[in-house]
Structure formats: structure tokens, C-alpha cells
């Protein structure tokens, strides 16, 4: 379980997170929604130590995320970045097997490559992609490679940062389905950030809406449409009229 308890984070005078409280149960898929610049990525990155909150605690299975062996802690996570964040100096298979080629999870090179090819196949890419460089791939293929990298070491917890941004609707659907399948199949805890309501419905068990630096609404995805929360209703409908200012 991941628990956010009164988490605050500011950048200069801008208070992004102002007391976030949220619980993500083990083995469930939580999708965080909210407008641009509301701190969704900050929330996600603060779990991994990429951003340090000024106040509050983040617990993973009851243990403070900032304490203990950070490498061992990070080895439990996989993350798909918004732009893929593939290392363009190395071929696709080395990107996917990055964690398996060094550090505590190191495997022999041939075995790491086989795992990488298998993970690529799992996300719908053929083995011949393994020796290409990221710059030779389309946006959708890069996302798939990023997804393969995120699951390569079989993590317990997977984060997806805007997995369908910049993709056409068909490719978005493919990525959404892959995420849902993989999370279910691996039994992993997932936390996804997105603006895309189609993704929310495809991926989520539970949804949390971040607005004004706090969790405005949280609940099962099935209750989202009937929540009665004016912020959530406006966000789902995409209307300019409502409590969320259209110009921010």
C-alpha cells in the first residue's frame, strides 16, 4: 500500500501540493487526474525521491519512502515516463534490460537480452526492434519500449506518467489495454497520471482528482460519473463552465 499523509510541496512562491492525503491499496490501479500544473507528476515523483516534499510523509507498505536502502526501495518500482525517456545512446534491448545489466539485479548479458526481447514481445514489438536505437522508433513504439523497460525487472509497483499523451486514439487504446493487462497479470500496484478520460476508464480501479493542491475527490472508477462533485463533473465533461477556472 502507498500512503500519502499531508504531503506539501512548493516551487518558489507556487504551492503545488498543499496537504495531499491518499491511500493506494496493494494490487490496485489508481489513476490520478487533474488539470495541467496541478502537481500530479510532482506527487508521483515524490514517491521515488525525484522530488522532496517539504512536509508530510509517504509510506510504502508502512515504511517511510525516504528511509532505508534507496536502491533496494527503487528496485521495487517500474516507471513509464511521459516522453518515454529512453536512453538514445544505447539500442532498444539495452534500454529495456538496463536494470538487468547492472546493479543488484544484474544478469548475464545473453539472459538480459532474452528477457528484453520477451518483454518487447509482451508489449507487441517484434525481436528485430531490439537492435534499433530509440531515434529510429515512432512515438507509439517508444512508449511500448518504455513500458517494456518499466516491467523488465517485474516490479511490485508501476508508475505511468501520462502514458497516452501524444498518441493517436488507436495507439492510445493499445497502450491502455497493455497497461491494464500487464498490471492485472503481474498483480502489481499501479499509479497512473493522465488527462485522458478514455485511459481512466480503461486503466483505473480507483480514481483520485487532484485540484488546488489537495485530493478533491477519490473513489472507485464506477462511481466517478455519479460522484456529484462539481470539480470532477466539470473535468469529466471538459466544460469551460464550472468551479475550475478555464484560464489558469
Amino acid at each position: 500500500m502507498i500512503t500519502f499523509d499531508n504531503v506539501h510541496k512548493s516551487f518558489g512562491p507556487k504551492k503545488v501540493l498543499q496537504g495531499v492525503n491518499l491511500k493506494i491499496a496493494k494490487g490496485t490501479s489508481m489513476v490520478i487526474i487533474g488539470g495541467s500544473g496541478t502537481g500530479k507528476s510532482v506527487l508521483l515523483k515524490s514517491v521515488l525521491g525525484l522530488v522532496t516534499p517539504e512536509q508530510g510523509t509517504i509510506l510504502v507498505d508502512g515504511k517511510d519512502a525516504t528511509m532505508g536502502d534507496h536502491d533496494a526501495f527503487l528496485a521495487r518500482f517500474g516507471m513509464l515516463f511521459q516522453g518515454g525517456a529512453l536512453f538514445d545512446s544505447m539500442p532498444v534491448w539495452q534500454n529495456v534490460a538496463f536494470r538487468l545489466l547492472r546493479g543488484s539485479l544484474k544478469r548475464p548479458k545473453q539472459e538480459a537480452r532474452e528477457i528484453a526481447v520477451e518483454k518487447l514481445r509482451r508489449v507487441g514489438l517484434t525481436p528485430d526492434v531490439a537492435d534499433l536505437f530509440p531515434s529510429e522508433l515512432s512515438g507509439g513504439m517508444q512508449k511500448r519500449v518504455g513500458l517494456a523497460r518499466a516491467i523488465a525487472a517485474e516490479p511490485e509497483i508501476i508508475f505511468f506518467d501520462e502514458p497516452t499523451t501524444g498518441l493517436d486514439p488507436i495507439m492510445s487504446g493499445v497502450i491502455n489495454d497493455l497497461i491494464r493487462e500487464i498490471v492485472t497479470e503481474m498483480g502489481a500496484t499501479a499509479m497512473t497520471i493522465t488527462h485522458d478520460m478514455t485511459s481512466v476508464r480503461a486503466i483505473a480501479d480507483n480514481v483520485a482528482m487532484l485540484h488546488g493542491g489537495v485530493i478533491q475527490w477519490t473513489g472507485p472508477v464506477a462511481q466517478m460519473d455519479a460522484s456529484g462533485d462539481p470539480y470532477l463533473t466539470q473535468f469529466i465533461s471538459g466544460s469551460a463552465d464550472g468551479p475550475i477556472e478555464a484560464v489558469r
Binding site: 525525484l50 518500482f77 515516463f81 525517456a85 536512453f87 538514445d88 538496463f98 539485479l105
Partner: peptide, 16 residues
């Protein structure tokens, strides 16, 4: 460029 494209963050999440 690695920083701008989140590759540095990716390194950290990959325990590097």
C-alpha cells in the same frame, strides 16, 4: 538534453 527529456530521472528510477 537527458535532463530535459527525463532521462536523468529515468536513471534514478532504474536504481542508477
Amino acid at each position: 538534453t537527458m535532463k530535459v527529456t527525463e532521462q536523468i530521472d529515468a536513471l534514478t528510477t532504474l536504481s542508477t
